[in-house]
Design a protein around this nucleic acid. Structure first.
Lengths: 224, 224
DNA sequence: GACCGTTCTCAGCTTTTTCTCAGGTTTCGG
DNA sequence: CCGAAACCTGAGAAAAAGCTGAGAACGGTC
């Protein structure tokens, strides 16, 4: 994967997360560097900021298309770029997320692109743990067959837990992945949302959401 | 499929969308390249701009006919080309769309051509979901047998939803597929059209159009 | 050029979600 | 068993997202 942004902080956050997920990552800070990197390494997918110091992200895409070196692109649009502008230029397979985004969202979109372009084996869009199921395409969540309605944040939180079952995720990890990277608020939101999830997910059946005091939370079956 | 246009942007939009739908795509920017590609690869269908730098699209069709290398063609006519002219020059299994078009429209027409020429298995032109039916040939829509009158945009929107039942389609996806690629306006049209559709489609019977807050819309049966 | 249906824009309103906060409960070391 | 730290949860304010009616703009037709 190639990550292109002129803010070193953003590049760092994203590329660390991607490497952690086992992806090979190259980075670039300008359009020119991005073009060079694509020509040399042919990445499977590119994360591309729409505003770069030397040229617009769209220009990078256009030039690659012109030389038939097409790479699926996930655009990062700035807060103030109107969504409409991005839209018109991303048609046909590319996607975009608006800054500030959550890593969970970014990674879900990237997996989507890889699934679509057939790079990754066409893995199912269903996550499963015990009698809990979550479908990333239909956004349906069920426990023992019964539908559960979740809000967007609850969904992201549960999805992140379900992609890391049995593993204890620290508060920092949860906040970093599920909330947008510039979230500066009270870290206690996490507790609130865990509470919401418990009410919905663990309403019946053995509890799956467990607190690991002093560390974070985990999804696992209760120990007998 | 072969996509022929001298504007790289258009070629990219179309070929990405088609690849995304699982079609194999080759591209060309001039009449000469198009002829070469047809001779070499014998595509099942060709998307052909009527105005190319070296010759008119119709000329490409004529030359192929002359050498009995006929390929069904979907012409792309420029905004200002009169419809009559295009109609007079398209024959047999050919069809045309006027720029700017929506991807939804283009893909529906291509599927039509494939169906007619028997390349794809003769899949039905009727889409069905629950008691809702939509006929792509006659443009008839019924719910529980009762006819529903839709405008062109409402039809495209419903068709796109019906080709992806149960899957949540993001606002961006809906705007990209249902509106023409150069639509730069307010993204809130989508909400307006969802509202129109609801009034017509969900007037009676359980609601099928559902909002997924923070994501988009989906067509599904209500959860009990 | 006037008409008609369609498409798009806009603004006010309603609903839902997100976040903050404060008072309680649990846990655990000493 | 006590106190401190960690955690839980209900209530509600603030923000975001979505709905819809009214009407302007557009495009085709007579």
């Amino acid at each position: 994967m190639l990550v292109v942004d002129d803010e070193p902080g953003i590049v760092e956050v994203i590329s660390m997360a991607l490497r952690h997920h086992g992806f090979g990552v190259d980075t670039a800070a300008t359009g020119r560097e991005a073009l060079d990197s694509v020509r040399r390494w042919h990445p499977h997918v590119m994360v591309l900021d729409v505003m770069l110091p030397d040229m617009e992200g769209f220009e990078v895409a256009r030039r690659l298309a012109a030389e038939h070196a097409e790479v699926p692109i996930l655009f990062l649009s700035a807060r103030d770029t109107t969504a409409d502008k991005v839209r018109g230029l991303t048609t046909g397979g590319d996607d975009y997320v608006t800054k500030p985004f959550s890593l969970e969202e970014l990674i879900a979109r990237l997996r989507n692109i890889l699934r679509r372009t057939g790079v990754a084996e066409a893995s199912s869009s269903r996550l499963r743990f015990a009698d809990l199921e979550l479908d990333e395409d239909t956004f349906e969540v069920t426990r023992d067959g019964r539908a559960i309605e979740l809000t967007a944040t609850e969904f992201r939180l549960l999805r992140y837990l379900m992609t890391n079952p049995r593993r204890v995720l620290t508060r920092a990890q949860l906040l970093d992945h599920v909330w947008s990277y510039d979230f500066g608020g009270d870290a206690r939101v996490l507790e609130t949302y865990i509470s919401y999830l418990r009410k919905k997910v663990d309403a019946e059946g053995p509890p799956l959401l467990h607190t690991v005091r002093g560390v974070g939370y985990t999804l696992r079956l209760p120990r007998e």
